[in-house]
Simulated scan of single mutants.
Amino acid sequence: MLSPERPLVLVGAGNMGGAMLEGWLAAGTSPRSIVVIEPSPPDTQALATPGLTVTATAPDGITASTLVLAVKPQVMGEVLPKLTGLRDEATLVVSIAAGITIETLKTLGRGPVVRAIPNTPSSVGKGMTAAVADGAGEKDVALADKLLSSIGTVEWVDDEALIDVATAVSGSGPAYVFYLVEALAAAGEKAGLPADVAAVLARRTIIGAGALLDRSPLDPATLRRNVTSPGGTTAAALEVLMAGDGLGPLMERAVAAATARSRELGS
């Protein structure tokens, strides 16, 4: 139960943390039951909500019901020791910092832990978050799922090692899509389109294809086949993209590289 004595404590109110805060407030969570720890708070409407406590350091005299860690992984080692006074064995810790392992999070003390990795579309409520729990009961998992669902869809895995793979697929994935837009626009320009026209065509094509994928019950392979006429232009392009040295093997190498880097960050 959230209260001024056992509030929901958010550490870090940047892009991800701020998006989560907005989601919680929009869902009806009382601002008086939330404490935000942020040394350099951005000028956002959510942080100006009446009743919300925003502080630069961990306040005295409270124990968090849930402690959500939304700081950059590079500063987690510096931040964690300053938060130990906010936790007891009943406090649920939820971390969204890439590469920070459950073992590291347990330095805060005994209690349930959830390690999660959202992606940047979370800032518009369309995020994809992968999560794994340790020492958490059904109620803890349900609560973490509710908190993380404020920014999009949540998928749970049983093995923490899979979080590094999820980081490579969905955490870093939006950058791959953005680069696809860049590459598609550049290819169109090289083939003769004006740069501004190529940019619009590429951008809106990815947006439209994503919307269709979101709304259609069909799997991606079926959607691809539906737009591919035998012997047509799409088929000609897919012969290149689906070749032995095409997009599939390239994506495998990209995901492997990102997975390895995620594990390095946690070591």
Rank of each mutant, 00 (worst) to 15 (best):
E189P: 11
L105N: 01
R225T: 11
M76L: 11
I34V: 15
A185K: 09
I207Q: 06
A202H: 05
G127E: 12
G18Q: 04
G28P: 05
L143V: 00
V240K: 02
T44A: 00
A168C: 08
E155T: 12
D88C: 05
S170W: 03
K146I: 02
S122Q: 10
V113R: 03
L241G: 08
A175V: 06
T120H: 02
P81I: 13
A130K: 09
G173W: 04
A70L: 11
A46S: 11
P4T: 09
S3Y: 11
E138K: 08
A183F: 09
V114S: 04
R203V: 09
A175M: 07
I96R: 05
V200W: 02
E22S: 12
T233A: 13
T57W: 08
G109I: 05
R263A: 15
R6F: 03
A70V: 10
M128A: 15
S216I: 10
T29D: 09
V181T: 15
G127H: 08
Y179G: 10
L21N: 04
A70M: 08
A258D: 07
L67S: 00
S30G: 10
P118G: 05
R203I: 06
S229F: 04
M20F: 10
L238F: 07
R6S: 07
A116S: 13
V165W: 01
L265H: 06
R261V: 05
A258M: 05
I163V: 13
A257P: 14
L162Q: 14
V197W: 06
G99N: 08
S30I: 07
A186D: 15
A130E: 05
T29L: 14
G28Q: 08
G137Q: 03
A133T: 01
A199G: 12
V71G: 01
L25D: 00
P42H: 07
L92M: 03
